[in-house]
Structures are given as structure tokens and as C-alpha cells.
Write a protein that binds this DNA or RNA. Sequence first.
DNA 1: AGGCCGTAGTTAATCGATTACACATGTATG
DNA 2: CATACATGTGTAATCGATTAACTACGGCCT
Lengths: 321, 321
Amino acid sequence: MKDVAQHAGVSTATVSRVLNGHAAPTPETRERVLAAIEELGYRPNALARSLRTTSTQTLGLVISDLLNPFFAEIARAVEDEARSHGYCVVIGNADESAEQEATYVRTLLDRRVDGLLLCPATDDPELVREVSAGGVPLVLLDRTVRGATCPVVRADGSEALTALARRLVGAGHTRVGVIAGPPDTSTGRERSDVFIGALGGAAQVVHGDFRQESGSQAAAKLIDDGATALVAMDNLMGLGALGEIRARGLQIPHDIALAVFDDQPWFPLLDPPITVIAQPTVEMGRAAARSLLALIDGRQPDDVRLTAKLVLRGSCGEAEL
Amino acid sequence: MKDVAQHAGVSTATVSRVLNGHAAPTPETRERVLAAIEELGYRPNALARSLRTTSTQTLGLVISDLLNPFFAEIARAVEDEARSHGYCVVIGNADESAEQEATYVRTLLDRRVDGLLLCPATDDPELVREVSAGGVPLVLLDRTVRGATCPVVRADGSEALTALARRLVGAGHTRVGVIAGPPDTSTGRERSDVFIGALGGAAQVVHGDFRQESGSQAAAKLIDDGATALVAMDNLMGLGALGEIRARGLQIPHDIALAVFDDQPWFPLLDPPITVIAQPTVEMGRAAARSLLALIDGRQPDDVRLTAKLVLRGSCGEAEL
DNA sequence: AGGCCGTAGTTAATCGATTACACATGTATG
DNA sequence: CATACATGTGTAATCGATTAACTACGGCCT
């Protein structure tokens, strides 16, 4: 910057003013400064700027699992929305581990992100408290924690789950195997609670960990126990369940019905196509980013609850096949 | 930091020494400082530290498309490797757009990442030159650019493509439709060049853009032109092709054979399972991160070329079905 | 006792920006 | 003609760390 100033025959203050679009400098001075910048290929040091202004124009996003397409889509949406407001997004991948999540959150805070978007790995409110105590704007995404005191953006699958349960019961299923998420996550509990409630007793539950392998194992156990329908509460566990079904040579929906929470582009391409509960991922990501930006702006956004939709495709023996 | 110093009755220099594990401070002093840090909940400002030391302990990773599971896996691997060396990764999503790529690269450089990993959107070397001119360590990943002067890490699919071509020709296919990537990317050109060469004239090519929609369109055109086998040079285009095949009610492999470059967890679950050329994504990501860290360290790593493997599964009418 | 040395700790410069305040110049006003 | 006021720029403090150069202290040797 000093070089630029010298080159243009002005002080660094003037260069800074030109850079930040202040009213002061003469068009002529501005011209000279811009020329010098161009000539020297000068690029301002974002670190120094941030140190001085205490604003990094950066959002932190800590997600549970980058390999889960659901979170990848969310990340993508967050990033789009943030960029359109001049913010950058730093993504941290917690890998469904609370420790790694905490590590990432601290790293991001140390780097002074202007706000944090978190998909909590567990519903323990401790980390959330720590962030809030630091005074950093925080929004929870997809999952919540016990007694959350910050805005939450998530999808509501109650209606869809209830409709699905009714459908399965109506089709005569009396043993529905539920592959649920971990009981210490809000989505892990809530989805299966609602669903089991709607089934009215015809359910058996196995908890997985939102990963493919656990889906296979849960499916194996549930099939052994005589389940005639399987519902996976997340796309990766759904993938695992599907693998187990294929491995056993079972026919969908004749031998066993299957439905999955979360849609994926390839689900419609299976034979039969898989019935799913589709979450509005893009809207969730965008809404979360908007809420966080509002918070940073000093406003107090409301919680956002978007509805997930049941998409019937045939894997549960629907008429609409 | 001043507060901590005051609290512990020492100067900021001493606090800094304790923080950085310097030899100087007495165990006793160290103890006092650590207590003060604990009590005040002090966390050092990474921006200030980086400004002073000109090292951010951060790697930049600009990938072509976060929604493409291939890149998501790579990102994951890069992140793992980087973290194990005490580095953080900032991911930028270029969305297969050269402009957005350039924007991200500049943003990352402005934030003074210690090194940059780039999956170039086009083979135009301009951006690479710009980064190199700035003296920032750079490694190319998956794709290269014309006359690249920096280390490149990528997968070599020649053998696998040749074997696949032989197989298809051997099975009697005389009209093989190739769904290639954009001709201005190295992977877009090389894969189809090798494959078409090995087919020896039995090929028709349509270039897509590495996205699902383009795969469908390409497949439609190739099927209309009488192709009896389709080979997609990327998993998203493969997904699109599969959709088109399904939409037309064609049977694989009876009516049409299909093979895809890039494996995905759900490919084996289709009926028939899809034959693929699998890239060692995790190894690619790790190798790229290691090369970059070596470069940052002042060493000069070699290019890395990992081999992709043909996985026969049945969608090309293999005996091994 | 005086000089020398090693050690623990302090002072102050520095990284690269932003910005409050001071200053100089030019124009309008009484 | 002196005063006030607007306008464009420069000076220097500041953000929060690191670190070279310096100081003070206590012990050891002759």
C-alpha cells in the first residue's frame, strides 16, 4: 500500500479512501491511485483490513458430514446466498463427531468469522452457549439443541411422516422397521417419534448414526425381526438399507417396502423408484444464511420451519406407481 | 492479550512466549499465565497472528462443483490430510464457471492462504500464471492446464478406458456413444480421446458440461443416432444418461449398454449394477494436500498420477454378472 | 569486592490496513 | 479585508499479535 501511495504521489490514507469508495478524493487523484494500483498489481491484505475493521466478511459453516449429499446441497445454497451479499463461507466438516465439531467452531471463532452456521452433532447446548458467550452471531441449521437460544432453521417432516405412516398401515403393514438417527440429535429423535406415534404400535426401531454402514446393519436386524416395510430417516442410511435388501435378493415392494427421508437425484431411477420425504435443502440453506446475515445486521430473525414433502414413487407399493 | 498479561502480572511478550511454547518462561510464570488465560477465557486473534507471521495455516481449495460427489470426496480427503498437519481448508465452489473460479482464487489469495489447490474449470493457464506470479504455492488437482508449471495430481484412466473399449468392441458394439466432458478441460478431452482411439472408429461423441442435464441431452442424441452402448465420462452425466435410458423404457444391458467414469456408492445397487471406472478419490485428495504442504515447505514435489480402475458389474453385458 | 555471565522478563518496532483529527487551500460572507 | 466554512490530503494512532534488542537480577570466579 505504501508503494502504491508513493507511486501515485499521495498518502496511504488517500489510497485507502479510493479503495473504500469514500467521497473525499478528487476524480483526478482517484484516477492516479487506480493507475498505480493497476500498474503494481496491488491487492489489499484482507487480514490487515479485518484486523482493523473487526469484520471479515466471512461466515463459518460447520456441517455434520460433507459426504452426505444433503449437507453438500445445503452448503452450496448457503454459499450462494452469502456470496450474493458479499460474504465468503468457510466450511468445516465435523464428520458427525462432537469433538471435531468443537474444534472447528473454535478455529472459526479464532479467525473471527462474522457469524456462524452450525448443524450440531449432538443436542448438547454447551457449544452453543460458548459461542453465544463470545457474542458471535449464531444460527442453527437442520438440527437444534436443548434449550436453544438462537434462531433455528429446519425442515418439518411431521405431516409427511404421518401421511407415510397412514399409507403403510393402510397397505396392511403391521411390522414397520424404523431406521432412526442417533437419539442424541434432534432430527434423530423427532422424526422417528412422530412417525412411530402415527404408526400406532406397529413399529420397531433401530438407531443408526446417519451413515451408510449403520443403515445396512439396522436393516439386517429389522428384516431378521420380520419387518415388511423399512423407513430410513436419512438418505445415507437409506442407501445402506437398500444395499442390504439387494444383498438378500428381496424384491421391492413385493417382499419389502422402503421409504427414505431425504430425496436424491438417483432415487427416481431405481426400479421401482424410491418413495421419499423430500426436504427443501436449497431453501433451508438460503434461509439460514439470510437469518445469520440479519443477526449480524443487528436484527432478530424468527425461527424458520420449512415443510418436507412426501413424494410417492412406488417403493411402498403405491397405486400411483 | 493485554488483559491476560496484566492479570498474570507479566508483559504481553511473556504471554506470547507461553502461547508459542518458547523456552524462556519459568514454569512458575507459565503456570500463572495459563491460569490467567483460563480465567479470562482468552483466545488469541488468528488474524493478528497471521498478519505478523505472514502464515495463516490455511489451505485454499477451489473445486469445480461441490454438488458433484467426486469433488465432495476429494474435498473431504484434502481436509483430513490438511487437518492432520495442523492446517485448515477453505473451500471455494466454482460451479464449473471460469469467472467464479477466478473470483474465488483472488479472494483466497487476498486472505493470504499459505497455498492453493485448484481444480481448474478450463485449461486456460492465465489464472495459474497469476497465482504463480504472486508467489503462492499452487497444486492442480484432477485437471491440468496448458503448459502447467506447477505440480499436478490426477488419475490416469487410459488403461481402464482401453480395456473397456476392447470389451465393448468384443461384445459386438459398433456404435458406441461417448458422453464426453467439455473440450476445454483436460479431463474432458483426454478421457474421450483415449477411449475413442481404443474403439477404433466405432464411436460417436457428444460433449456435455459435467452436469446431469447435459448427460440426458447427450444420451438422447446418441440413442437417436442408434448407439447400442453409452459411456459417460463423469458420474453426473452418467446419472443424466441413466435417466434418459429409463425415460425411454430401455433395458440395460439388453437394449443398451452403459458404463460411467467415476464410481458412486449407489451404482452397485442398480439393476443391473453399473460398470464403472473408479478413481482413487481419497488418495487423490490426500496426495494433492501432501504435495501442496511439501511446496509450502520449500520442497519441490513430483507430479502424481494415480491409476483409475475398471470395475465390471453387468451393465455392459459382462460375463462376470 | 568487582567484573562477568546467563536467564527471565520488558520495551518498542512491526505486520498492513482504517480513520479521527489536523492542516492547507480556496471560496463565500459580513 | 478579515472571518467562516467547505473540501481534499496528510499525520499518526490503532487493531492484536510476534520478536529483536535491551535491562535487571542473582550467582560465580578470581
